[in-house]
Write a protein that binds this DNA or RNA. Structure first.
Lengths: 197, 197, 197, 197
DNA sequence: AATGAATGAGTGTTCATTCAT
DNA sequence: AATGAATGAACACTCATTCAT
């Protein structure tokens, strides 16, 4: 039933997929409707048949992306029993997703402000979901006596913030290998700290 | 003799200050030369008397900002003796600087790619400086027997990444208070970890 | 069915025609896209729907012009049998074309240097075509025993250069009549010389 | 008494000399007051102390140039006795002058129209002088029985036009050597013609 | 369902010119 | 006599969006 042709699919989906790649590489601002039209093999005005505006395309892309992230992370986390591994797998899955594209439009700041109405909610929602997920891991680990946490909310937020840094590997033009090494070290720090106990 | 008027100052400085505010709020892409001209009470073409291009204005702003950051952090760090406090004060000074402006243009991704030539160098340089500073703190702490670190380079990078997350308090619309609390918790995690030893 | 309205025609053609008049009168540099837009009754941005840039409009105009010139000259030349008349008709057709517009953008020097990339090729090509055409006339005349030429290439070039001067009737604000008279005299000189044999 | 420093001279002269070089290379339109200021080692506004406008600088340059041309040509012509040589030397001196600079601002068309007021007169005047000079040579040659000319005015104009072509060697990207060869051939044609007598 | 054509509102940048000193 | 500072007017070009078909 499935053909290899992307063109046979739901045109909305075709556009979203094309736009996803462009947004990921160039961000919202730098990606033009012309670009999206070309990439999705449609006329520019056709995009407006399926989407209200460029912003509408963008939010659709983000929504899809977030759904994918949530599913992937949720599944990966549940596959581990050890709380430390659960956290580790959470971070790694997240990283795999983020590092797939050099740029992560989810984290584009400029766009965030230009279009804070819609995007803000999406991102906030996703962040809250991440924090909640971390919190669940912490509770799970505490129940198992592996983690030593009392302020679950605060610590979840702290870990969340620490992991946010992983979204910006570009700053020091790090290679995939080095990023993985840095991630492992960061995980280690977060679990054990740097102080001599 | 001093008047309160910004207009009496060095026009280059006046422009930079005006631009700083705009860049911080709207990013490089969304801030127009028209905006900067209006904000600095000058004709648009006057900006080109003092700066070669918009990018040049931007770079000047960033350079100033980075210089301020380096000075503030360096001084704060040196004022503490305890390695843990040294690290803490490093993070807090950094945070104070970043949270002063809702948006931190230093971390604007889109612009980063559009103009990676000039900006890249500045940011890389600053990031390397931060990592080096962290490394120095770690070495100091290790020498004092407070920290338990061997891979200084790797751990510096890990901590650097973790702190990067603090540049994005906007993700969860956090208040200043909550951000400070989160920072304290993050610091605690980084120093002691979450695992029961 | 045909209306007299230029507006019903192919828009690309409408723009080219409008631009042709402007370029002829004011040259490339002085003619703005705004001007062309106004003259062709289109929005400025519409021009960019049909042409990549101002230079692109210009090149299109020139190409059209050159094609017309080549056709007109080629046909006229072939219509004469006597070699002297062939040369005469060559010059006259050329002149008719050039004198139709006060200014001949083909010969605008400033533009030539500003945009030498594209225009250079066109002009070179046309000049070479003219030289070749002259050479063919000379060969034809020599075969018929009318012309006394041996260095065909050199003499073709020399005649070409002499005729170039006709593109600049403006220098001495000459009337159409006087220009024609001067042309006839020039032709006579080129054929018979000024020296008493 | 003379110092080697151009700066010690009459500032007006210094500016004119600097502008001359720039106009010759880039034409009036492409040469900015900024360029002239830099080249004459003066502040941009200083130019306006000595000249009313850019156009004023330009006409001053042209006037100087024309004076030089007239002097050089006049002198060279008078140095020859043979009428043919007189004409030959006229052309060669002219050519030497024109070919010294790849571009000859005197012949820039675009500028001609942009500023036809002043420049027109200058150029017309110079052209008339050239035509008159040619006429004098023809009369001299006729009196000596070397030239076979009756319509002195018409033939002067024809020769003038033919020589105008030499101002545009750029069209066929000709080398100095080839230009000289072409000039010799053109001279030969003008004196003897191409027809078998 | 899909699009070619068209456009308004901007964008960064240039430059001749002015003027207070 | 000389100039640093400032500017208005223009310029080529971009792009999200609209609309008739």
């Amino acid at each position: 039933m499935k053909t290899g042709m992307a063109e046979n699919r739901d045109p909305r989906q075709v556009i979203i997929v094309a736009a996803k790649g462009l947004f990921a590489r160039f961000g919202l601002g730098k990606t033009t409707m012309e670009d999206i039209a070309r990439a999705s093999n449609k006329a520019k005005s056709t995009l407006y048949y399926y989407f209200k505006s460029k912003e509408d395309v963008f939010t659709s892309v983000i929504m899809l992306e977030i759904a994918g992230l949530k599913a992937a992370i949720g599944q990966a986390v549940r596959s581990e029993d050890d709380p430390g591994d659960r956290f580790r797998v959470f971070v790694e899955t997240r990283l795999k997703y983020f590092s797939k594209k050099t740029d992560q439009y989810i984290s584009i700041r400029e766009d965030y402000h230009k279009h804070h109405g819609l995007i803000n909610d999406l991102l906030d929602d996703y962040s809250q979901w991440e924090i909640a997920t971390i919190k669940r891991i912490l509770e799970y680990g505490s129940a198992k006596g592996v983690f030593d946490v009392h302020d679950f909310v605060g610590v979840s937020r702290g870990l969340f913030l620490a992991l946010k840094g992983l979204e910006y590997p570009w700053v020091v033009d790090i290679s995939k290998n080095e990023l993985e090494k840095s991630t492992a070290i960061l995980l280690d720090i977060l679990l054990k700290g740097v102080s001599r106990n």
